[in-house]
């Protein structure tokens, strides 16, 4: 019985340690404001990358609409707190709900389209959202919204990330997640197995959209200022790079991708062009040499560590005997 729960207990411990280290770093003043911002961004990027991976990697669709869903979430959340003066948890619910509804509206008609057409259609959706937001005076037009309460702190980011990942993991490990995988692998055969492919395509799309909406709410309530132009398709491309680096269809890979690339861009902040050149090269190299993503679709599990541990142990042993 204990053995069965061992990995879960270990995971909880590891998370608790991670949480405490960062929290101590923040409250103890060990981390500069710059790095705190980047750690928060990392969290937001993990949510974005893993939710895009649910659509692009696990269900095999190709969406480029993530910036749009994030914008919907960010502005809805900001309206709830800044304009209506309601509490932050309501902003999260409203932001996710609005993004999910946007997901249904966009997904229902466009998911019938083949992969590359879907990509352009969702990209178009994102642009429409941006242009429409720029034209609504209620949300500040092109200059966006200001004075959004800065309530987001490390515990909120941490819990959001953990819950999002848990939600996606549970979904993928369920019969519904398997149906999504079946759609990716062979949609005709999936239909013949009784899988309603439209339902599952839209479902994965909507879950992905809702989580992008969550990322948007967090983003808005961290920076306190949001402008429509921040949510252009360049943002979607950033997330796409994280997914591709981490591997299509690997949840842990998305976490790694988001962490790696957020760190890389933190270091390259001074020369943003170079950062984009790096992203571009990563996209090309991964597509040409590793179409499943640089780290492939493998998950990092306890067994991975055991294996690495084993290799390390063997290497050390050999050194000693030599």
């Amino acid at each position: 019985m204990l053995k069965k729960y061992f990995p879960s207990i270990l995971a909880c411990l590891a998370l608790a340690v991670l949480f405490t280290i960062v929290q101590v770093g923040i409250s103890g003043g060990l981390l500069s404001g710059y790095w705190i911002t980047n750690i928060y961004l990392m969290g937001i990027n993990i949510i974005l990358a893993s939710s895009l991976n649910l659509i692009n990697g696990f269900t095999g669709e190709f969406s480029l609409g993530h910036a749009g869903f994030m914008a919907v979430g960010a502005f809805t959340g900001a309206i709830v707190t800044a304009n209506l003066g309601l509490p932050f948890p309501l902003a999260i619910i409203a932001g996710m709900l609005a993004a999910a509804i946007a997901g249904v509206i966009v997904g229902l008609p466009t998911l019938r389209l083949r992969g590359d057409y879907l990509a352009i259609a969702t990209l178009g959706f994102g642009e429409i959202v941006r242009v429409v937001l720029m034209n609504i005076d209620y949300v500040g037009g092109a200059s966006g919204m200001m004075g959004i309460p800065e309530v987001v702190n490390w515990p909120i980011i941490f819990i959001s990330v953990v819950l999002s990942l848990l939600l996606i993991r549970n979904f993928i490990g369920s019969s519904h997640g398997r149906a999504c995988l079946a759609v990716r692998e062979n949609d005709l055969a999936a239909q013949m197995m009784g899988v309603n492919i439209t339902y599952y395509k839209v479902l994965a799309f909507v879950i992905g959209a809702a989580l992008a909406g969550l990322a948007g709410v967090l983003y808005a309530h961290y920076y306190s200022i949001i402008q429509p132009k921040e949510f252009s398709f360049m943002l979607t491309f950033d997330v796409l790079v994280m997914v591709m680096v981490g591997g299509l269809g690997s949840l842990t890979g998305s976490v790694v991708g988001a962490v790696l690339l957020t760190t890389a861009s933190a270091f390259l902040q001074a020369i943003p062009e170079l950062r984009m050149v790096l992203y571009a090269l990563l996209l090309i190299v991964s597509a040409v040499f590793r179409p499943q993503g640089l780290l492939g679709e493998k998950e990092i599990t306890l067994r991975t560590f055991e294996r690495w541990g084993g290799v390390l142990y063997a290497a050390l042993n050999r050194k000693q005997t030599e």
Binding site: R178, L181, A182, E185, N186, L188, A189, A190, M192, E297
Partner: peptide, 11 residues
């Protein structure tokens, strides 16, 4: 079943 096998190959 299909004439040309259509399994979920990566699963």
């Amino acid at each position: 079943t299909f004439q040309n096998i259509r399994l979920f190959g990566n699963l």
